[in-house]
């Protein structure tokens, strides 16, 4: 079983390759898009790289699926924005993200902007735990 440090180093390796930068001091709390300089293509590229490296299905949509499961039949989105209840569930599912970044009526397309290095680690750990192989 891979420990947290090995997982962190593996994710960092993929980030460096994706961004084509040395980035010697990546932290778990770094935001991939805004702080490490990634764009939406890099985001997709990183997902594909993580899937290849760890041989699991890494799907950011899983977070939404889990939140929707918690909400039951209540809507997660209204006019493409997360409801207050959905945001509360996201805050629990993504404890690495400061609460103020996940706010009621937040547009769904903004969620990837909140992703930390730790978020990707958690997605991989979740996929491994649930046997979601590629």
């Amino acid at each position: 079983m891979m420990n947290d440090q090995a997982l962190f180093e593996g994710v960092c390796e993929c980030i460096r390759t994706t961004l084509g930068k040395d980035l010697p001091d990546i932290r778990e709390s770094d935001r991939f898009v805004t702080e490490l300089g990634a764009d939406s293509l890099d985001f997709l590229d990183l997902i594909f790289s993580l899937e290849q490296k760890f041989n699991v299905s890494v799907n950011p949509r899983d977070l939404e699926r889990r939140v929707q499961e918690r909400l039951g039949e209540k809507p997660m989105l209204v006019d493409e924005c997360y409801t207050a209840e959905a945001v509360a569930a996201f805050r629990e599912a993504m404890p690495e993200v400061p609460e103020e970044e996940l706010f009621p009526d937040m547009p769904a397309r903004q969620l990837p902007l909140c992703f930390r290095v730790k978020t990707f680690m958690n997605l991989i750990a979740y996929a491994r735990h649930h046997g979601e192989n590629k």
Binding site: T17, L44, D45, F48, S49, E51, Q52
Partner: peptide
Amino acid sequence: LTQAAMPHMLP
């Protein structure tokens, strides 16, 4: 089809 190739080509 082009999108489908991306997971294999980008990494």
